[in-house]
Design a protein around this nucleic acid. Structure first.
Length: 169
DNA sequence: AGCAAGATCGGT
DNA sequence: CCGATCTTGCTG
């Protein structure tokens, strides 16, 4: 299956989330390309979403979210865990999907450690990168939604939005 | 220049 | 529940 082009990511993050669930993530680890199924993601949707880093506007860290969808947004949290995100929507509409789970690794900090993902992936283009991309497959999946994890500080209505998408077992 | 907080995780 | 660990963005 061919990798998704940038256009796949250039629509609302709430549209991309269910579409990307169950799809195949390719990542080069120790010089070998490995594949994983994406089974948990969270949507962060624009400056109005107080849980989204873009709520603070465009900064050196968040500027990639203002670029067109299909790029990678990586940042360090708690001084020790890299978070892997995929930017969605059109240019200047800052949205991103946090990858929280893939086959074999549940938890956003654990999967980036397993894939050796760090700040050097910031801005990577999923349509042309040689070390990370996503492709379609024939998987038929069902999913459930829940509130997002660890963002209670954002308050209502954001902390209650059902913007965490999980593949059913 | 200094500081508080954070999209986590593993051990008590 | 608590600590590890350090970048970021805000304040002064």
């Amino acid at each position: 299956m061919e990798r998704f082009p940038l256009s796949f990511y250039q629509r609302d993050v709430l549209e991309v989330a269910p579409l990307i669930l169950g799809k195949t993530l390719f990542c080069k680890v120790d010089n070998a390309v490995k594949t994983f199924q994406i089974n948990e993601v969270e949507a962060y949707r624009g400056e109005e979403d107080l849980a989204c880093h873009a709520a603070k506007g465009k900064t050196p860290r968040t500027k990639i979210m203002y670029d067109e969808g299909g790029h990678v947004y990586v940042y360090l949290i708690y001084g020790m865990y890299w978070m892997l995100n995929i930017v969605t929507a059109e240019k200047n509409n800052p949205q991103a999907l946090l990858i929280r789970g893939i086959t074999g690794f549940n938890g956003p900090g654990k999967l980036t450690k397993a894939l050796n993902i760090d700040k050097t992936y910031y801005g990577e283009n999923l349509a042309t990168s040689k070390r990370i991309w996503v492709s379609n497959n024939e998987e038929a999946i069902k999913f459930s939604t829940t509130p997002r994890i660890g963002i209670d500080y954002a308050g209502e209505p954001w902390k209650s939005k059902l913007w965490r998408f999980v593949v059913d077992k």
